[in-house]
Amino acid sequence: MDVATLMFIAYRAMDDRIVSAMREAGYDITVAQARLAQRIAEDGSRLVDLAEQAQVTKQTASMLVAALEQKGYVERVPDPSDGRARLIRFTAEGQAAADHARELVMAVEQEWNDHLGPPLATALREALTSLRELVDPYR
């Protein structure tokens, strides 16, 4: 099996576990919504930036943000640096959800680190970080 497929399998396993645990905790969120929400900057993000980072169309990003907004997880506010633009940012409920998701991610990562052992876990993180520098323009 090629390396990209192996990485994808691990990525999807993480997605599925986190979204399932989020739902069990009472947060109504889909995988697509979670992927977009994890890219919202602390001080808010423009829709076009979220779409680009999530590698979806602006229309898809808009639909996902609208669903998150309807659920009370995000809000659109004026961008202080550009009066014509709007920022998407977490509401208090959305921030609580994001914080919970981060805790879940850290727990799964710890499980993986325990399984791999410190040397292999460190090497994996370093290798993936190096690959990110090669392929990710949003780093």
Rank of each mutant, 00 (worst) to 15 (best):
D2Q: 00
Q110I: 02
L120M: 09
E42W: 13
G72C: 09
V65P: 13
R89V: 02
E109T: 06
S130E: 15
T60F: 00
D43N: 13
Q53D: 11
M7Y: 13
D114G: 01
A51G: 05
L50I: 07
A10H: 01
M7I: 15
D99P: 01
Q55S: 14
A51E: 13
V105I: 14
D16N: 06
K58S: 15
Q59G: 07
H100E: 09
L120P: 03
Y11N: 10
D82C: 03
V56A: 06
M63F: 12
E109K: 12
A98V: 00
V135G: 04
I88L: 11
A98F: 07
R139W: 06
V105P: 00
A13D: 14
L104T: 05
L116S: 03
G72M: 12
G94L: 02
V135D: 05
D99Y: 03
L116G: 00
A10Y: 05
A98Q: 10
F8E: 13
D79G: 09
P118W: 07
P78A: 03
A32H: 08
A92K: 10
E75D: 10
F90N: 02
I18M: 03
I88Y: 12
A54Y: 14
D16T: 08
M106P: 01
M1S: 02
T129V: 06
T5G: 01
A4Y: 03
V108M: 13
R125P: 00
V56R: 04
M106I: 08
K58D: 15
Y73T: 08
R86H: 07
D28G: 00
G26R: 06
V65A: 12
L116W: 05
I29K: 00
A54S: 15
A98G: 01
R39P: 00
V56W: 06
S81H: 11
R86L: 10
Q55F: 09
L47P: 00
Y27L: 01
L87F: 06
M14Y: 07
M7K: 12
I29T: 05
Y138A: 04
T5D: 03
A96W: 01
T122N: 02
E75S: 12
R102N: 11
Q55R: 14
P78C: 06
R76C: 00
A127M: 04
G44Y: 04
S81L: 08
L68K: 04
A25E: 09
P78W: 03
A51Y: 09
Q59V: 14
R17I: 05
I9H: 09
P80H: 03
A61S: 07
R17C: 01
R23H: 14
L50K: 10
E24F: 02
L104D: 05
P118M: 11
R39L: 15
G83D: 15
G44P: 03
A61M: 08
E133I: 01
M63H: 12
Q38M: 08
A4V: 04
P80Q: 02
V19N: 03
D79A: 09
A54F: 10
G117P: 05
L64D: 12
L124S: 11
P118F: 10
M14S: 01
V65E: 10
T122V: 08
V77W: 02
E24I: 06
A25Y: 00
E75Y: 03
F8D: 14
A21W: 07
R46G: 08
V31W: 11
P80I: 04
A51N: 07
